[in-house]
Computed example of a mutant assay.
Amino acid sequence: MSSSSNNDSKPLGEQELRIAANQFSNELKAVASKIGELELQLDEHNLVIKTMSPMSDDRKCFRLINGVLVERTVKEVLPALKMNQEGIASTIEQLTLQYKAKDKEFSDFRTKHHIRIASSA
């Protein structure tokens, strides 16, 4: 706590503000990129689950696990896919909350220090 109170009382220079703003921006971009990547994985899981659901439980299928293609049945693979799908969705939720919190923190920082972001257009 003492370090944050020291930072609050000491005004930041223009260079320090620029570095902090860039750091916030980079963190937001990284989280947004990860969310996008996970949403693609979720879409792939949804597609595979939708395709496999009407199939017979004893039908043969193949699954890539750590770079190794293994033969399984729909009955074995479908529950694992659904569990992965739920995990990915949960992670997306957590990252979205993290993104919103970081965005609010950045917005508060910009307001406190009267920072305007110039558009690059």
Rank of each mutant, 00 (worst) to 15 (best):
F24E: 11
I19Q: 14
L64E: 08
I49Q: 06
V70Y: 11
K10R: 14
V48H: 04
S119D: 09
N22L: 13
L17E: 07
E44Y: 04
L95E: 05
L12M: 12
E76N: 11
K60T: 15
S107Q: 11
R110G: 02
Q98A: 09
F106D: 08
E39R: 10
A89I: 04
S107M: 05
K82S: 05
L17A: 10
R59P: 00
V70S: 13
A101Q: 06
A30I: 03
L78K: 01
E76F: 10
S2W: 14
K29E: 11
E16C: 05
E39T: 03
R59V: 12
L40P: 00
A32Y: 04
R110P: 09
V48P: 00
K112L: 06
D8R: 15
E76P: 00
V70C: 09
D103W: 00
E44D: 13
A21E: 14
E76H: 10
K100S: 07
A30D: 14
R18E: 15
I49R: 03
T111P: 01
K102P: 03
T51N: 10
D103P: 00
K34G: 03
K34L: 05
A121W: 04
S120N: 08
E37P: 01
P11W: 01
G36D: 06
R18Y: 13
S4Q: 14
R18H: 14
S56W: 03
L40E: 06
G13F: 04
K112T: 07
T111V: 12
F106A: 15
F62G: 10
A121M: 02
S90F: 06
L97W: 01
R59H: 11
R18G: 12
T51H: 07
T111E: 12
E86S: 13
I88F: 00
Q85K: 05
L38M: 06
Y99G: 00
V74A: 08
K34Y: 04
A80F: 13
A30N: 05
D8K: 15
R110N: 12
I115T: 04
K100Q: 13
F106P: 00
R110C: 15
S119R: 09
Q23Y: 07
F24A: 09
T96L: 01
K75M: 12
E71C: 10
I117T: 05
L40H: 01
E105A: 13
A21T: 14
M83W: 03
F62E: 15
S5G: 04
L17F: 04
L69R: 15
N7D: 15
I92Y: 05
V48A: 09
V31P: 00
E37W: 05
Q85A: 07
E105C: 03
L17H: 07
V74E: 11
L42R: 03
S9C: 08
L78S: 04
D8M: 14
V68D: 14
L12P: 00
G36V: 03
E86G: 07
T96Y: 01
L95W: 02
N26F: 08
I35P: 02
D103C: 01
F109H: 03
N26M: 12
M83P: 02
P54S: 07
R72S: 14
V31S: 02
H114G: 00
N66I: 06
E86H: 04
A30G: 02
N6A: 08
